[in-house]
Design a protein around this nucleic acid. Structure first.
Lengths: 246, 246
DNA sequence: ATTGACTATCACGTTACGTGATGCTTTATA
DNA sequence: TATAAAGCATCACGTAACGTGATAGTCAAT
């Protein structure tokens, strides 16, 4: 599908699609030669997600962060979005009754306090935001994610390659002991690389390794490079952290 | 009440209150001496209205125009807002079922068309916007037509005379620049008079001026009062509209 | 009398696009 | 097949609704 077709299907503007491409939120294939954007089914799926997030007032940057995360799970996102939409509907119900009361109040039938007058309008601690932050919010990993999201297209490309390279290297030595020279050398490379993104203390670094095995979503992604890589990295990272912690 | 109290009551920021004051949307009394903003009950009522409109994605400029109109009716506004909120709730319901279907689709239980995938997200012709534009929007011309149609004979006579008087006045200054003091004063008189008939937003007013030169029937009739009057009025009306917007 | 919480007014920054301007494809029509 | 019309692309600047300090005056409590 080309831009206008997508625009007409979804009700958003062509410019919006351009914008989402510009910021790297949704970058479809481009027709070689003409440079036309071509949206496939997977792009439409992603766009659907994006628009749900947008309806829930997530800033685009955060949407990007969430969806680029290695922890991202499409179906889980849908469930959380559903919950948040239900909460939003509750808020609207609240506002409707507030209006009803206000009308009655205007006709002198009832009295209203100032608080009641704004029930439903107040946004501050709506539970669905809480829910979302809990699910995707500011963990230690978050910092590096932010950095990643703020990077330009080529930079991201470079980084993805660097990650890939390091994982592959590590995968080749995953059957050696975790404290072997090679393993520790690669792990150091890994540590130094991570510290270009955000500052990881040795403690945090060790914790990150622990997460690799504790969180099945992490494990799954890492073990794509080789069975048992997550476990191996956890051990090697722990060794590295302890050795260098004086 | 002072700014922070209002902010805490309503959940909006102090800056937002400042902003609404800046653009003349909600300008409370100021404490003489300190200059502190003091919000009374009527200001809170108005703020409630504003926030309902905002929830329904009305731009602030339009909210201002709506609420400044001489035709504005608080209670009627509440009723329309209620209707629009109910429609919004329907849209959310639609989105929720879309999510449910998407989840089922993901699990291979059902199939989905592209259109279904975006049901509820598409905003374009939701009826509540229609409703609102009809009520307050740029149908000002139609409103005035209706009003004229419903007027008695003498009233129409009176009106014709008033029109005649204003046109004659304007014809006397049609060689001055469109932004001269006199021209603008007469144009303001014209604007205020029109607003006794129907509510003309500044945008609509400007558009009306444009019509004076675009539609030859208009031009012909107006230029009876003096050659080039239509053109002059168009310019003066545009200046007036732009100066008073924001 | 001093501190700390509030307030005010600039003034520049940000997000998520809107709105042309200009020029290259692709499709429809003569 | 030529030629227009429609669609696409990339700048680049504009806008709406505030956010975010910076700086300075005010008020209530210690």
């Amino acid at each position: 599908m080309k831009v206008k077709e997508v625009a007409e299907l979804t009700g958003i503007s062509v410019r919006t699609l351009h914008h989402y491409d510009d910021i790297g939120l949704l970058s479809p294939q481009k027709m070689p030669g003409s440079g036309y954007r071509l949206y496939e089914t997977k792009d439409l799926e992603k766009l659907q997600q994006i628009l749900f997030f947008r309806e829930l007032d997530f800033p685009l940057r955060q949407i990007k962060e969430i969806m680029m995360s290695p922890l991202y799970d499409h179906e889980e996102a849908l469930r959380v979005q559903r919950k948040m939409l239900i909460d939003k509907r509750k808020r609207i119900d609240q506002m409707i009754t507030t209006i009803n009361q206000t009308i009655q109040c205007e006709e002198g039938e009832i009295e209203m306090t100032d608080k009641e007058r704004f029930a439903g309008i107040d946004f501050r601690h709506n539970p669905y935001e809480e829910e979302a932050r809990q699910r995707w919010g500011d963990t230690a990993v978050e910092q590096s994610k932010k950095k990643i999201a703020s990077m330009g297209e080529e930079e991201q490309q470079e980084m993805a390659q660097a990650f890939d390279a390091i994982y592959k290297k590590l995968a080749t030595v995953r059957d050696e002991p975790a404290d072997s020279e090679k393993a520790q050398a690669y792990i150091e490379e890994w540590f130094l690389y991570l510290n270009q993104l955000g500052s990881y203390s040795l403690e945090a670094f060790k914790g990150l390794g622990q997460m690799y095995v504790d969180d099945p979503r992490f494990t799954k992604n890492i073990d794509k490079y080789g069975d048992g890589l997550a476990e191996f990295m956890k051990n090697a990272m722990a060794v590295y952290a302890e050795r260098n912690q004086r």
